[in-house]
Simulated assay, not measured.
Amino acid sequence: MNLRVLLVPVVLILLAYIVWQLLLALRERRAAAAARRALPDEAGSAEDSADDDGFDYAPALRAAPAEDGPPAAAEKAPAAAESFQLELDVQQLRRDVLRLQAEEQARRQEVIALNEQVQALREQVEGLQAGHGVSPEYNEALVLARRDYDAAAIADRCGISVSEAELVRSMTRRDDRGGEG
């Protein structure tokens, strides 16, 4: 029974504190809504009407007479709201930049993979072109000659004589000059 007597005032004090905090939050929200309405930006007024459901709780703020003293509270609120909006915009731009950088990195990886595939296909085409109309025995020698291997390296790798390798090299040089002219 003694515990109940002590618990009831504590609960009442907590409830009073919660109500006080709610009233402070409402007052701050009203001040922020009034500050947004004071801005010439039309986007802010559209947000106010959506937030308040068309019901104006806060009185309109009047500008203080111009003095040489510190700026009025009405002038501080728009500046704070504007700086907050700018900070949000900066954060959004940073997220966008990070997303774009990730996309660019993915595109670069794709380009590298495609370049490797193109190079492999070029080598296949060279091999096919080299072997077109030539004995299968000299296909590899022709490919190596087009890659500017010397006659001794071609002969060793393909198992042909050095003179045959020289002949293959001269044929590729002739074909290359004939294709250019």
Rank of each mutant, 00 (worst) to 15 (best):
H132F: 12
A152N: 04
Q124P: 06
E126S: 10
L144P: 05
Y138C: 03
Y149R: 06
Q124D: 08
Y138W: 14
G131I: 12
A151Q: 02
R122Y: 01
E126G: 09
N139S: 08
A152G: 01
R147M: 03
L121F: 00
Y149N: 04
A145F: 03
V125L: 06
A130W: 04
A151Y: 00
D150E: 09
G133M: 06
E126I: 11
L128H: 13
A152S: 02
D148K: 11
R147F: 01
Q129F: 11
H132D: 13
L142T: 13
D150V: 14
E137R: 12
L144K: 04
Y149I: 04
E140G: 13
E123P: 00
A145V: 07
A141D: 07
L128M: 08
R146F: 10
E137L: 05
A152C: 00
E126D: 14
Q129D: 15
L144A: 10
Y149W: 09
A151D: 03
A141H: 08
A141W: 08
E140P: 15
D150G: 08
Q124E: 07
V134A: 11
V143L: 08
G131E: 09
R146V: 12
V134Y: 06
E140F: 13
R147T: 02
E123H: 09
A141I: 07
S135V: 04
Q124R: 10
E140V: 15
R146C: 13
A130I: 11
D150R: 05
Y149V: 05
E126K: 10
S135Q: 04
R147H: 05
Q124K: 09
Y138F: 14
A130R: 12
R122K: 07
L121V: 01
E137A: 13
V143Y: 01
V125I: 10
D150T: 14
Y138K: 10
G133A: 11
H132T: 12
G131N: 12
A151E: 02
A152Y: 00
L121I: 01
A145H: 04
G131V: 11
H132M: 05
V143D: 03
R147N: 02
G127L: 11
A130H: 09
L128R: 13
H132G: 02
E126C: 05
A141L: 14
R147W: 02
H132P: 01
R147C: 03
E140L: 15
L128Y: 09
A151C: 00
E126Q: 12
A151H: 01
V143T: 05
D148L: 03
Q124F: 02
G133D: 12
D148Q: 06
